[in-house]
């Protein structure tokens, strides 16, 4: 697991500038810390904290509401998710910014779910809660509740994949299956034909996703083009691959789906897997 590191304040403000977000267009995949602060001040955003509820109660970004990842996973139908949005005071038009305290994967899975049920205007906070706090940005302990809102249900099946589509992808031209687990897990076993883009490649200590230029280069190195159709998956519930979903979108891929039930379901269904047992690579690990 990547350990999270915290940058100093000076360094941070530089990286915010270099990101060059000139507008507050929330269709952006990531929202910089600076822009989020402005939006919070203007009361023009719903901030969603996906950490455990206890962590939220201790401290969270100002105005944030708590929707833990576990609750999203428990509410396993589009209808229930929409209800969750409504209860959180999120209407069709409310811009949403999601954050977590790992490296963006939990936030990514929640943001993807919102987009899946039709809330396209969902974006990821560029950084983690720990970083936000270390920059000295606004936090609070107050539990925020907003009046119930109306939200319509428009399921976006273009960004979702089930095992059937994964199985078919293998034989189709220009369809690429991306496994976003760590290298050793991938080497041990994976869905046949998948290419490995470990989640560890996607971000830096300061930013949950790298510069789009870098992501583009990684894609180009692997022969993934913008016009390919990509399906991402990971080990169990689609968090790591959720992050890869957003990373590849940032790299310009237009058609991309998340196989949210991922390798766990694939194995349970007894689908074929590719294994590699001729090397003892696990013994290289120093822990």
């Amino acid at each position: 697991m990547r350990s999270l590191k915290y940058a100093t304040k000076e360094k941070k403000s530089k990286s915010i500038l270099s990101r060059n977000h000139s507008t507050s267009n929330l269709q952006d995949i990531v929202t910089s810390a600076d822009i989020l602060r402005t939006l919070i001040r203007k009361n023009a955003v719903r901030v969603v904290d996906v950490r455990k509820e206890d962590d939220y109660k201790k401290e969270h970004i100002k105005t944030a509401i708590s929707i833990p990842l576990a609750r999203v996973l428990d509410n396993d139908t589009p209808e229930k998710i929409v209800l969750l949005l409504e209860q959180s005071g999120i209407s069709d038009k409310t811009p949403v910014v999601v954050y977590d305290d790992t490296f963006g994967a939990l936030a990514a899975r929640v943001a993807w779910t919102f987009q899946y049920v039709g809330h396209a205007n969902t974006s990821l906070l560029e950084t983690t809660f720990a970083n936000w706090k270390s920059y000295g940005f606004e936090t609070e302990k107050k539990i925020n509740v907003f009046p119930k809102a109306k939200h319509s249900l428009r399921v976006n099946n273009d960004i979702f994949a089930n095992y059937d589509e994964v199985e078919k992808a293998k034989s189709e031209q220009n369809k690429i299956l991306v496994d976003s687990r760590e290298r050793l897990n991938f080497l041990s076993e994976h869905i046949p034909g998948a290419t490995n883009l470990p989640y560890t490649m996607l971000g830096t200590s300061e930013s949950i996703l790298r510069d789009p230029q870098e992501i583009k280069r990684f894609m180009e190195n692997r022969g993934i083009s913008k016009d390919d159709e990509v399906i991402t998956y990971c080990g169990s519930v689609g968090t790591l691959s959720g992050l890869a979903y957003f990373a590849l979108r940032m790299g310009g891929v237009k058609k991309i789906r998340l196989y949210s039930r991922s390798f766990k379901e694939w194995k349970k269904l007894g689908k074929p897997i590719e294994e590699f047992k001729d090397a003892n690579f696990w013994d290289l690990s120093a822990e």
Binding site: N196, P198, T200, M201, R217, F218, G223, L284
Partner: peptide, 29 residues
């Protein structure tokens, strides 16, 4: 190593440091 290899490095017997199991496509990175 975290990003492109296996999250650890190896000190060799000739004062090199080695990163294992890097995808060929990422070597230039």
């Amino acid at each position: 190593s975290e990003a492109f290899s296996i999250g650890s490095a190896h000190v060799s017997t000739r004062q090199n440091i080695q990163l294992h199991w890097v995808q060929l496509e990422d070597v230039s990175e």
